[in-house]
Design a protein around this nucleic acid. Structure first.
Lengths: 228, 228, 228, 228
DNA sequence: GATGAATGAGAGTTCATTCAT
DNA sequence: AATGAATGAACTCTCATTCAT
């Protein structure tokens, strides 16, 4: 094994340990000590590669995010397919992904976005994101930026569904109720909730695709036997 | 003010401060010091009444939970009303409640249930709840019990919807897709997500009832213009 | 010993330990661990009372500074005495003080003012002090303020000499060479150097007053046997 | 460029970077990482040539010290000149040198001699130097030696003034007050203080020679208008 | 009964030095 | 010969909990 390979190996071992530890402890409860013990390396090495605990987490989820986006785009971009088919495709990818990264994405959604501290991200005029506090003051700018980058990941992950959804509106595929802006976002998040709160014994048996089909069917055609 | 009143006053002041601090910091970032400063009392007093930081949080959410349950039951129990009407009623209460307690219930759902550490609660044969770990070991029994009590709160809050939903199944109000067990739970959680991730500028304007009506309509009759 | 006394006792023990440790290690090399071990207390106690290592040091020297200023003013303010007598008085106090606090005041002069990192303090138009960097950038504002407070201590300590000196100029006590502004400051600092670099065996034997007299004589009447 | 030249080039680049970094950070705050980044070389190279951070600093100041000594000796050794002229000459060199190396020599005087940790150097019977601790124990012998070498540099730098001064005593150039041994040292150090604490706006304008002349005049003939 | 001073384990981070390549 | 990845001891600081008054 040459130098380059060894270096990659170290980085990789840290990355693997990082995933394991954050997945079993969340962010705040995870300790750098546990990570380096698992990676069998020194603290200095970790900090040389990743700079800070927050950067370490960001690097991990950022990488996973990129893989997710590639998969999502491959199913979302196929204009041959109809609205329903595309929705099912995107949700299948999303469910699959969340099942593999349940804890990490919970941590990302609630802990890292500081949604659980009363901050939310709102769009600015020029299409960017800005942090907003439900009460009191915002943190220092540098910390705001650290928080916002997680919001940006999520925003990008929601976009494929939003786009298909808007195509559906243009096609008059949807009824007038559908005009509310948050519906696309809501499908995305409702699925996340489904996976976050699944209990091991019932949900796992259903394949991601089957689940996605059902969810889309319910959203599109409803649960009711009767006509509205 | 007599002794009893004075004691109540102290407890109340701590409770109010507790809500304020956990609501703006989440659980991990909240400090007991900030709470007692706001309550203008001593640390010993707080620990005398509430025992631990975790018990303090539990007491707070437990109290709010009880208020929520009373409201939910008052709209869920009315057998005169139809399925749709009852669903709208429950969700209206739920949305209203979450809007007032957004951060607290996020913390409850993800931080306190340790859902963000890979634990989930599964039903036991005798109708109770048991903790299960996605990986590795469970924490000591005492800590498990502390975690489980939060799961019990959530389970109880979901029940009214589940009951209405099961009534719908008995009435043949729903189509066969609806047979999946998690659907009731999913409506409940999807609404939570909607409120957790609202951004201040758009959602607030819609009344809780209007929002509930739309959500139920979509669930029941679907988004699609066309027949399935 | 009652509660108040005990509290004072703890604070005092920390203060004493602080002086001992900073006096034998300087600032950077001193560790909080050594201080608490010597004070026989916990880390939390130290941080509760003093907030940070820097604040701890500042509290210590600030206290000593106040004692020094009282003594200086008592000898500098006596308008009955002549210029020479007053100079001798101030320098006696200064030498005495420095002998007792040699290391602390070295640390103050060089380490804490960051003079040893190329920063100096210059007077602003409104009589305050501003930090200036010989090269490159200044540190963040908050850190600048921490540095400046040490400069302010020193500036105040120099002032009594400056005042006597200016009185001398008004009285035409000095010759025209004396017009340079920095001369008062220089006497003050030269004495500091004398004490900082004394070697135990020779200087200590001379009393502070005797030393002060000699220094003043040399400054006033010169070393030379001959007339200029 | 051949091998020898390349090696020299590397050494030189490290030396230049060393000066830059220690000059803007002092010793404790300087990092080897910053030095090698500036020198555009590897850490191993630096440690190969210089052995340790302390040795690196010593090599730097030692080199500058040698240049200083050559200049000092060239003005101190000229027996043609009178006492006053020689003093002015030495101080001119010394002021010039300090202005160019203000931070480095501050670090040398206070940080490296561990004067700021309560150690001082005293002469031994055989003319050497020995470390002495104001309180407590001395460090291990090896570290003592590292500290002493900085004292030796300073002692050597003071010597030219001492020699001129002793010539003055032999010539009966000085009055009886001047017999105190530390006076030569004090002139030397007072000048250092003057440069260390100059503030950019006033002192720089005066040439080193002008300043030296004034200092010597004051020392020799005094500040007072009146005869003693 | 109410208090808050005292605690100390444990957190994230830095950096001089080594040594295999 | 030159490198820079790897190290880990040591640093400052936090905070839930206790218990003497």
């Amino acid at each position: 094994m040459n130098k380059k390979e060894k270096e990659l190996d170290k980085r990789n071992r840290i990355m693997v340990a990082t995933e394991a530890v954050f997945s079993r402890r969340g962010y705040a409860q995870a300790t750098v000590d546990e990570i380096i013990a698992l990676a069998d390396t020194g603290k200095g090495t970790l900090y040389k590669y990743f700079g800070s605990k927050d950067d370490l987490f960001y690097t991990l989820v950022s990488q996973k995010h990129n893989e997710l986006m590639i998969q999502m785009q491959s199913v979302a971009g196929d204009v041959q397919k109809g609205i329903e088919e595309r929705l099912v495709g995107i949700l299948t990818v999303w469910i699959d992904f969340l099942r593999k990264n349940t804890v990490l994405w919970q941590v990302l959604c609630f802990e890292m976005t500081c949604s659980n501290r009363g901050y939310s991200a709102v769009e600015t005029e020029n299409g960017g994101l800005r942090l907003e506090a439900r009460w009191g003051d915002l943190p220092p700018l540098e910390e705001q930026e650290n928080i916002l980058r997680y919001h940006r990941l999520l925003e990008e992950e929601i976009r494929p569904i939003t786009e298909v959804y808007q195509a559906g509106i243009r096609n008059r595929f949807f009824n007038e109720i559908a005009s509310h802006d948050d519906i696309a976002k809501n499908i995305f998040l409702a699925v996340a909730m489904l996976v976050f709160f699944h209990t091991t014994n019932n949900l796992e048996k259903v394949s991601a695709e089957e689940l996605a089909k059902n969810i889309v069917k319910i959203r599109l055609y409803g649960l009711s036997e009767k006509e509205q």
